[in-house]
C-alpha cells in the first residue's frame, strides 16, 4: 500500500535526521538513537538554542535542498520535533519532485 511506503519513508527520514542533528550540532553526549521523534527540539526536550536551530536549518538545506518557510508560526511547528521536521521535508521534496 502506498500509505505504508510513505510511513516507512518518513521513519527512515527521521533516523537520518537524528544523525544529522547529532553531527551538525556536534552533540557530544547524545546519540541519534537517544532522540525521541516526538521530543521537543527546544526547551525541555533536546534543549537546542537559537544558534543550534540556525545550524540545523543550514544543514537541512545543504542535505535535502529544502528551505525553511518564511512563515513564523509554520517554522515553530516544523521545528517542534524530529517527526514534524521529517514530515515537512518529505512534503517539500514531494512537492518539488511532483
Amino acid at each position: 500500500m502506498p500509505g505504508d511506503a510513505a510511513t516507512q519513508d518518513s521513519s527512515q527520514l527521521e533516523v537520518e535526521l537524528k544523525t544529522l542533528i547529532v553531527d551538525a550540532l556536534k552533540l557530544e553526549d547524545t546519540a541519534p538513537q537517544d532522540i525521541d521523534s516526538d521530543e521537543p527540539l527546544v526547551g525541555d526536550g533536546l534543549g537546542l538554542d537559537s544558534i543550534d536551530i540556525l545550524e540545523l536549518a543550514m544543514a537541512i538545506h545543504r542535505r535535502y535542498g529544502v528551505k525553511t518557510g518564511s512563515d513564523d508560526s509554520q517554522n515553530r511547528e516544523v521545528y517542534g520535533s524530529v517527526r514534524s521536521l521529517a514530515a515537512f521535508i518529505a512534503e517539500q521534496r514531494g512537492a518539488s519532485a511532483g
Binding site: S50, I53, L54, T68, D72, N75, Y79
Partner: peptide, 10 residues
C-alpha cells in the same frame, strides 16, 4: 520559541 532565528536567516 527559538525559530525567530529562521526569520533572521531569511
Amino acid at each position: 520559541d527559538r525559530t525567530y532565528i529562521l526569520t533572521v536567516k531569511e
